[in-house]
Computed example of a mutant assay.
Amino acid sequence: MNNSFKIFSALFILLFLIGGVGIYLLIPKIGYINSSKVFSEFKLKKELETDLKKLELAKQRDLDSLKAELEISYNELNNSAKKSEKNINEFKVAQQQYYIREKQYNENYQRAADEYTQQVWKQLNTFIKEFGKKKGYDFVLGANGAGEIMYADENDDLTEEVLEYCNKRYDGDIK
């Protein structure tokens, strides 16, 4: 009986270990990233941000030039002893053209900014998916403090690792 008790105990311990390992294997591997940080420090985002700044500067130069012309016209019109209907209408047309161009520039800028943001997220999502697969994660969650994840253990924070991976992948250092 002593022998069968030992065999039974060994089988019980073996089954217990197999069950424990099985349960461990069923637990998904989960990590999270600070999505705002990954977005803001991604190299593609920084490059596109530089392009947007160039676009903004070009827009501002053109608008400043038009505004200066408007101010000159306004001052000439105000200082003129004879204010003709034609001069007043020409000023109003120029003023209206300025506002139309300003609105167009703002709309174009916003459209470009939105397209750039979509382009950055599309690329990041691809790289983060690759990262998760390569590292064996079942889930990589995004946290930004706005309700996606309100708390997670810092040991599960993949932000720096994911950011490094994405930037290296973008540079072509990782295939």
Rank of each mutant, 00 (worst) to 15 (best):
Q118G: 12
D51V: 05
K168I: 04
D157T: 07
G142F: 11
F5T: 09
F42W: 11
Y74E: 15
E102C: 13
E107Y: 13
D171F: 00
I30C: 14
Q123G: 14
I88T: 15
Y116R: 09
Y170A: 00
N34W: 02
V120Q: 06
Y137H: 02
N155S: 08
N108K: 06
K129A: 07
L158Y: 13
E107M: 13
N155R: 09
K43S: 10
G142M: 09
K134T: 08
D62V: 00
K134R: 11
T126V: 10
A10R: 01
R101Q: 10
S80W: 07
Q110V: 00
L124M: 05
W121Q: 00
K133W: 12
V93P: 03
D171L: 04
R111Y: 12
G147W: 10
L141F: 10
L26H: 14
K175F: 09
D171R: 06
D157W: 10
L15N: 07
I128A: 08
L57C: 13
F42N: 05
K37N: 13
K67Y: 15
L52K: 02
Y24P: 04
K83I: 06
Y32E: 00
K46D: 10
T159N: 08
W121P: 04
I174R: 04
N106Q: 11
N75R: 12
K45C: 07
Y99H: 07
K59E: 11
F42A: 07
D157H: 06
N144I: 04
I128K: 00
L124W: 02
L11F: 09
L66D: 01
S65K: 04
R169A: 10
L70E: 06
E41G: 12
L17G: 08
Q95P: 06
I72N: 05
L163T: 01
L14S: 11
D153T: 08
V162N: 03
D173M: 12
T159S: 03
I7G: 06
D62W: 07
Y137N: 00
Q60Y: 13
K168P: 04
K103I: 10
F8Y: 13
G20R: 00
W121V: 00
L48R: 02
L17Q: 00
F127P: 00
S84T: 14
L17I: 02
S73Y: 04
D157M: 06
F131Y: 12
N89P: 05
K43F: 11
Y137F: 04
S40D: 15
K82N: 12
K46Q: 11
K6D: 12
G147D: 09
S9V: 08
F131W: 01
F127Q: 03
D156A: 15
I7W: 02
L48E: 01
G31N: 02
K67Q: 14
A10P: 06
K168G: 04
T117E: 14
S36Y: 12
E71I: 15
R111C: 09
G132V: 01
S36I: 05
S84H: 10
A68T: 13
Y32G: 03
L11C: 08
K122M: 07
N78D: 15
D171M: 02
G22F: 00
N78Q: 15
V162H: 07
K122L: 11
S73D: 06
L124Q: 05
